[in-house]
Design a protein around this nucleic acid. Structure first.
Lengths: 139, 139
DNA sequence: CTTAATTATGACCTTATAGGTAATTTTTAA
DNA sequence: TTAAAAATTACCTATAAGGTCATAATTAAG
């Protein structure tokens, strides 16, 4: 199913995963298939997301049998923005905010600066907001 | 070219069009091909957008030869939100804000309310901001 | 009354990408 | 040696964005 939202399913899953891992007791870890099941994420898809988080140093892993993954960053220092960017977040409020965009409206389009401002507000909020505020605990 | 932004090209064009029409002297109108050229919008695409705006009562038109289109709403009462919605704006910050979305995370996901709040802030801003602030004048 | 220019309207086309799957390799505990 | 896990890469597919095309209806002007 193809959806249309500012953050993608994959990025949302990235948030879920980090929020869940942040709730594990220090030193504990969990294998990806279990994690995926608990968070209702297709297992292989979860593996790919975890891999991106690992490359960014957000999660760590223990390989081999009885291995698993855990959160490496401190939840109170890990922002939503950090996670989203790691999972490829590039969405802009308007296409004219993209770097390669060339606007033909030479005669004073004021929409651009409006969207620049709104986007800035949103990004600052995503940076200020930390995963520690969203820890997922099982029942 | 497929892009990824919160508002689509079509919706951005809708904003351009209303902002331009808002700058025409009272009583004047312009034909779609000319309008499209001035705003760098493919002519047929512009026609379709104009049609949507007309159905919503935002623009009016004069049919037949030497006809054209004009803004019917008062620019200071016409919000960005009004225009965007007319051009099919449905984007959500996160898919979990969509009506038909069923969240499997029964154990207290706090991301939902975070995105609800941010989206509300953004929508309120779009409603408060009027086309009159963005009038496009030619050089 | 014919022509040309315009709006009105709906069907259609193309391409990028989100979202997910599959397969294989490497690692390690038991 | 085996089983279960992470690592990695290639591949598949449905769909929406972005745009085109075709045709009908309308109207001013010669």
């Amino acid at each position: 199913m193809r959806r249309n939202s500012f953050i993608s399913r994959e990025q949302d899953y990235g948030l879920r995963i980090t929020a869940y891992l942040a709730g594990l007791p220090k030193g504990e870890f969990i294998c990806v298939p279990k994690l995926a099941e608990k968070l209702f994420i297709p297992s292989k898809f979860a593996a790919r997301i975890i891999h991106k988080l690992k490359k960014a140093g957000i999660t760590g892993s223990i390989r081999g049998k009885y291995g698993g993954v855990f959160l490496k960053s401190e939840p109170q220092n890990l922002s939503l923005y950090d996670v989203l960017i790691t999972i490829g977040f590039k969405a802009k409020l308007n296409d004219c905010l993209n770097e390669n965009f060339v606007c033909e409206l030479t005669f004073g389009c004021k929409f651009h600066s409006f969207f620049v401002n709104e986007e800035k507000l949103l990004m600052e909020k995503l940076q200020k907001t930390k995963i520690s505020e969203f820890i997922l605990h099982e029942l």
